[in-house]
Structures are given as structure tokens and as C-alpha cells.
Design a protein around this nucleic acid. Structure first.
Lengths: 215, 215
DNA sequence: GCCGAAGGTGAGCGAGCGCTTAGCGTGGCC
DNA sequence: GGCCACGCTAAGCGCTCGCTCACCTTCGGC
């Protein structure tokens, strides 16, 4: 999971579950194209071309162009949820769990920026049914982070007045990394993850009663 | 400036400078359409229709569809920059100036969500020249916020290790409001502005040496 | 009361879109 | 070795896109 993953164009990562091979190649091509140009500006000819196939080949594996986006979005959201769940359910104090959640969530958004961009910013391009399905996953993502913050408030480690609003802000901060992060920029995903974990701990008031920006 | 501005569909606000009247109506129609569907998914027929005109009328006032986006983006960024400059150059401590900057910047993103969405998220739909012009404005926006944070660090009010990274995070947090804010949701723009000002002051460590989350 | 500019329309252009269909090559099975 | 299912392609259909063009209306200046 934290082995040599993606950096620039590759980012093949978690698409291993998609079979057969041609369908996976098309999906990866679609992710790259959607991230670069946006869903609506991407043509099926472009996707097929990137995958080294003719335009018609796409329709053997997917019913429509939207189905491609739907599949990408669902797999991406499931991955994001898994990352947060892992951090949330490990043992440790709320402070440690929140720092872990934020830093790994941010690393995913920065390192897999291509995928994350599509997952987080092309939601409105989905039809109503697919959109509703994805929104249910997003509510689970929200609940996971809110759970950690509530734990911290309960234990007295955090000092938060508006738990819902703060949860929203924390997630918003992490998600927006996919918009601005530049692979050629001065920061590595790990550095941004560490910086953001520190900033988020400050936001929830961790370390107001104890020293917390260690590690 | 803080009079009864926009709430839902209206949001006519700062487009007063655009003349003649027909050109302004087209511009407002374009903002609404771009915000709703995205630039690439919006048709010139849709824009003209919303403005109560025929598709051809658009080309009397604008050379291309992209020129509409360019104009919207430039006016929007100038407005955003003006808001931050006003907060940055008023008198007061860095803490007060930063809180003012964040809360007014957030209010603009939440209240004028329609406009802000287009301004912040359709940048990539511009051609290279227009894009470069807008990016120059964004660097000024960044510099304005960084200036306040640097002042706070210098005066000892703030405790920030990575000034550039923290500036980026603060701006990112504010900008992303345009993505998730819902006019029909439970929070008013003013409430989000106040919450975010508090969160940002925590992020920069204001009140670590003095009480700061007052007001 | 005529005239030209300004601002608008209806029809339609070439291009490119998402998607379909007829047919081709190939490898596994009897 | 004949057969057929599978994966794929070349060609192209119907449609809608951004944008243009020929023409129409309105209105202030003289």
C-alpha cells in the first residue's frame, strides 16, 4: 500500500481488481483523460486512443461513457473510505488516529492526484442514480472523520465547538489537495500529509492541554 | 459591500460594470449555466436562451464562448483580490486582519457560490493566454494572505513553521467552500465565515500565547 | 422623412460528438 | 480440421455543437 506507488503518468495502483485486461486499460485511460480535460471535454475517441484501441472497442466493455465515470468514482470512493476506516479503527488516541487519517488521506489525494481529481470533482457529471450511490459513500466518509473528532472531544483531547462544521472543514481541506497539488511542485505527498496532519490537530485544539505536534 | 447582496438565483452583484445591458444579461446567464453544468457541458444556445435571446445574439457581444468565461474569471478574481486587500491593509493586529480576510473571503465564496464556482473551478477550461493572465491574479491573492501570516509570525502572534504551506492550506480551505456550500443547507455564509476564521486562527497558532478566539 | 449604425433574428454551415453495426481474425474444443 | 464464440475494427448514422451570414427592425441626427 505504501510501496512504490504512483508518481506521474503511471498511477496504475488499485485498478488491479478490474478485469479483463482491456477493460482495465480503458479505465486507466479514462481516468487520465477525465483528470486532464474534464469529463465533458473528453471524447470516447480520446479514451480509446490512449488505450491503443479503436473507438468502438470501448462499447464492448462499457455500455456508455458515463459508466466509465461511475466505475472510476465508485472504486475511488471505496478506496478513500478504506483509507479512512483503517486509520479510524486502529488503536491509539484520537489525536494519533486523526493525524493518521489526515496524513494518509492527503497522501492519497496528492500521490494519486489524477484519480482523486476525477473522484472528487466530476461527481456532478454523473446521472441521478449513480450520483445518489456515490453520495451515500461520501456520507460514510464524513461519518468516519466525525467519529474520530467526537472521540477526541469526549476524551477531552480536542476542543471543538462545532463538530459537524469542523469535520466538513477537515475533509474539505484534504479533498482540495487534489485540485492544487502539483507533481512537479516543491512538496512530496508525504510532506503535505505531515503538514496537514499538524494543521488539522491545531484546528481541533489538540495539544491545547497537552503537547501534540510531536512525531 | 455587505448590504443585502445575493442569496439564491439572483446574485446580480458586481456585474454592474459590464455594459451594455444585453452583454451583462448574457454574462450573468453564462455564470449561472457554467456553475450549474460546467463550462464544457454548457451550450451557447443555453446561455442565449437564459438571457432571452437567440443563439446568434451572443456573438454580437462576445467573440467566442471562451471570451465569456475569461471575462467572468477576470472580474471574479479582481473582486476576490479586492476583498483580501481590503482586509489585509486595514489597521489592526495580524490576528484581526487574518480573521477579517478569511471571514469576508469565505462569505464571498458561500454567498456568491454560483460565481465563485466558475471563478475557482473552471480555470483549466481557459486557453493558455487567458489562463496565464488569471494565474497572475491568483499569485497576488496568495501574496496578500501570505503577507498577513508573515506579519503575524514576525510580531510573535502566530506560530507557523511552513509559511508557504500554511498559506496554501488557508486559501485552499476558503476556496473549497464554493464546492460544498449549499444555499439550502443549515449554515449561512456569515456562520461559515465565523467558523472558518476561528479555525484558521487555530491553524496559525494565534492565541497560543494569548487568548484569541474571542468575538 | 430619409439614412446609416447598432442590435437583433432564422436558417444553416462544417465539424465532431456518442454510439451502432457488419464483418474480420484468431484461439480453444470436439 | 471445421466451427463458433470472442475481441476487435472500419465505416458511418443521427445529432448537436460553436459559430456565421443574410436579412430585418428600431431609432437618433439632420
Amino acid at each position: 500500500m505504501s510501496t512504490a506507488e504512483e508518481t506521474a503518468g503511471g498511477e496504475a495502483q488499485a485498478w488491479g481488481e478490474v478485469t479483463p485486461d482491456a477493460a482495465r486499460r480503458l479505465l486507466i485511460a479514462a481516468v487520465e483523460a477525465f483528470a486532464e480535460r474534464g469529463y465533458h471535454a473528453t471524447t470516447t475517441r480520446d479514451i480509446a486512443g490512449r488505450a491503443g484501441m479503436s473507438p468502438a472497442a470501448l462499447y464492448i466493455h462499457y455500455k456508455t461513457k458515463e459508466e466509465l465515470l461511475h466505475r472510476i468514482s465508485r472504486i475511488g470512493h471505496e478506496k478513500a473510505l478504506e483509507i479512512l476506516r483503517t486509520a479510524s479503527r486502529r488503536e491509539g488516541s484520537p489525536t494519533e488516529r486523526l493525524a493518521d487519517a489526515v496524513s494518509s488521506f492527503v497522501r492519497w489525494h496528492a500521490g494519486g492526484r489524477t484519480t482523486a481529481r476525477v473522484v472528487q470533482y466530476e461527481l456532478d457529471s454523473l446521472g441521478p442514480d449513480a450520483r445518489a450511490e456515490i453520495l451515500a459513500l461520501r456520507r460514510q466518509v464524513d461519518a468516519e472523520v466525525r467519529g474520530i473528532i467526537e472521540d477526541g472531544v469526549r476524551s477531552g483531547e480536542f476542543e471543538v465547538i462545532d463538530v459537524h462544521g469542523t469535520t466538513l472543514a477537515v475533509l474539505s481541506l484534504c479533498i482540495d489537495v487534489a485540485r492544487w497539488f502539483n507533481v512537479d511542485g516543491p512538496r512530496t505527498p508525504e510532506e503535505v500529509g505531515a503538514l496537514y496532519a499538524d494543521l488539522v490537530l491545531r484546528m481541533v485544539g489538540a495539544g491545547a492541554s497537552a503537547a501534540a505536534s510531536q512525531k
